[in-house]
Amino acid sequence: MWTFRKPLHPVAEAYRDGRAGSSPKGRTPLDVLRIVVIDAETTGLDPSRDRLLSLAAAALSSGSMPMAGLRSWLIYQPWAALNDAVAVHGITPAQTARGEPEEKVLFEFLDLIRGAVLVGHHIGFDAAIIDQALMRHYGTRLYNPLIDTAALAMAELEAFRKTGYANQRPPGLEEVCSHCGIPMMERHTAEGDAFTTAELFLLLCARRRRRLGRPLEWRDLPSLRP
């Protein structure tokens, strides 16, 4: 039986094409991978209901973060409410009105992350929100391999090791950063958190490289998908 499927949007198609064969092999050196650190601010914590308010991406290049590779977008959400989340990210309904259309932002975002490994703190949540938005506009989801810095921190830093305690939750960005002595820049803006997360990621990678005594490879990092 025929199911009607909306044909994939060309942008999404290009994104999916870029993905083909992009899943890194285990021994690929980390330095040759395209790594993009992302962060999203949202209207709330429920991926099925809440929407993107802002998005930021920091592209890394062979172990360092050029300022030129830092992008951020403020997104226009017509139904943004003045809820509790506003107190966190500080993006008021009036400000979101000055944002760009979600479709256009996603378009640029997809272009940027094509073929890249995405890194974020609690990236599962960011990815879920972005998935929903992608599905609405382009009928696709994220296919990039994901790395969660919270998981990396738990593996790398003694203070956050898995204990077996049932209610142990992955550490927050603030906790890990204050443990590592990384100051929070522009906390709860997508750009600031992406920058801080990138710094944290670089530090954790450097720690692990030091510990292993060799340059890092893809297999050395805990990845979530695809």
Partner: peptide
């Protein structure tokens, strides 16, 4: 200058 900066992180021993 800052807009053209690059951030690099190294750990003790590097």
């Amino acid at each position: 200058l800052a807009q053209k900066a690059e951030v690099r992180v190294l750990v003790a021993g590097d």
